[in-house]
Design a protein around this nucleic acid. Structure first.
Lengths: 178, 178
DNA sequence: GTCTATATGCAGATAGAC
DNA sequence: GTCTATCTGCATATAGAC
């Protein structure tokens, strides 16, 4: 029906692969499973992405971009400092609510191949130095307590992300929903 | 040198298996790798633990017990409330410093088989209800701000654990050590 | 209890018809 | 571009000598 280069099939593959890889990880995922999920043949996977490795790389890059990237853009915007933090927090709550497996997946796979981190950070365009400048300015102006900027970032990430990462444990602890 | 049922070999196997499983996860681990690490033959692994699955179960149970269990015991002790929190925090900092892979491993594998959580919690003897009672008492006495006890626990765990889980990312962010 | 050699099954990848 | 059939290698697991 069209000469469109990104056919519906490729879209289906990406969605299916994302689902399976995020649930099972690279080693646990099966090409057959991804094919079934996408409703196509296993051989077609290799037609579009020559290997499992290549398919995974695409999914992982996507996942990583969802996991980290917006921080830089929010921090560089002109809104109030506390609104920035609020925006970051809401950003994470939102994404992770729809994608509970995302953080464990990213962190786990990043352990497998730490060397990929640097290239990922470049792709996302995050500029850590600017965060430090912004936070130092707020501290100097007395608007927030003095705190090492690394601590602040780590704490924010901790409080946002871990509740989702640890959800199964927390649920087991409390024996109820949410 | 003895009729001791847990020979040196079994000890070597457990240590090697722990190392490999924590680094690679169940799917990524190779029995050959574990055997090499222990300095024994692959067949001996099956002699002691009949399958990869059984060996893994042992390692996972151990890891889980290191990850969660002491909280209950600390909370039930008679020391001051804030000292309890301090004890828990120090407990984690200590364990995770020596075992950085532990949290990702536990969380990741728990995703693979959520059904194992309940039996794990029973084994560790953690009693969530008691935490709530203790915290509610502190709130009523005005010694701490009113806070839902689930929030408090989750926050503490977040701030203790995530910095280790996210270490590779944080390192990449800051481009320096620790 | 520990080894070598081997059986078995499965997953990633390719060949080739349509 | 999509399928069926097949090749290939590898990982778990077992058999059996020592």
């Amino acid at each position: 029906m069209s000469s469109d280069s990104s056919s519906g099939t490729e879209q289906k593959i990406v969605e299916a692969a994302k689902k399976v890889f995020l649930e099972k990880g690279f080693d646990g995922a099966r090409m057959q499973h991804i094919a079934d999920e996408a409703g196509i043949n296993k051989a077609s996977l290799h037609y579009y992405y020559r290997s499992k490795e290549r398919l995974f790389d695409k999914i992982f890059a996507d996942a990583f971009m969802e996991f980290l990237p917006k921080i830089g853009r929010i921090m560089n915007s002109n809104i109030d400092f506390f609104d920035k933090i609020k925006a970051i927090v809401e950003h994470y709550i939102n994404i992770l609510s729809h994608n509970p497996h995302l953080p464990v997946f990213v962190l786990y796979e990043l352990n497998r191949r730490p060397e990929k981190l640097l290239e990922m950070l470049k792709t996302t365009g995050v500029e850590p130095q600017q965060l430090k400048i912004i936070i130092d300015r707020e501290v100097a102006a007395g608007r927030i307590f003095e705190i090492d900027f690394v601590n602040l970032i780590v704490n924010i990430l901790s409080l946002c992300i871990f509740p989702f990462v640890g959800k199964p444990i927390i649920k087991g602890f409390i024996m109820q929903n949410d």
